[in-house]
């Protein structure tokens, strides 16, 4: 177990930095998590993060990369629904890294 400080609040995380409690998530902790990885969150990042939160809300799972890519393409357009675009935004892996900022558990099947 670890923890992250953001805006005077403490957020519990697991040993890999994923939030322990999905409901404790807010935008502040996402910003701080990104800063730790040297990543500045733009509107394009937020689009994906918000998409993941909505997907989890509906299906109770974080989607696999292949599923995420296809679903993003359908929702936000083909120019965004490809791994090149998503890996540019999230170089540590779109599913893994974006899920972390979105406060979700690590995607099922991710090692």
């Amino acid at each position: 177990m670890g923890s992250i400080e953001a805006n005077g609040k403490t957020y519990e995380t697991d040993e890999e930095g994923y939030l322990a409690d999905l409901n404790s998530w807010d935008k502040d902790v996402a910003e701080v998590m990104a800063k730790i990885d040297d990543c500045e969150l733009t509107d394009n990042h937020w689009e994906v993060i918000n998409f993941l939160r909505e997907y989890y809300e509906e299906y109770q799972i974080a989607p696999a990369v292949r599923v995420l890519t296809k679903a993003i393409g359908k929702k936000l357009g083909k120019d965004k629904g490809n791994s090149k675009y998503l890996y540019e935004l999230f170089p540590y892996g779109p599913a893994k890294q974006a899920c972390k900022y979105a406060g979700l558990p690590k995607p099922t099947g991710c090692v």
Binding site: E58, Y59, Q60, I61, P63, A64, V67, K70, A71
Partner: peptide, 14 residues
């Protein structure tokens, strides 16, 4: 317990 019944709807995506 976690309600995983909504997850069956994601099977189509997979």
């Amino acid at each position: 317990m976690k309600n995983f019944s909504p997850t069956y709807s994601a099977l189509g995506d997979y």
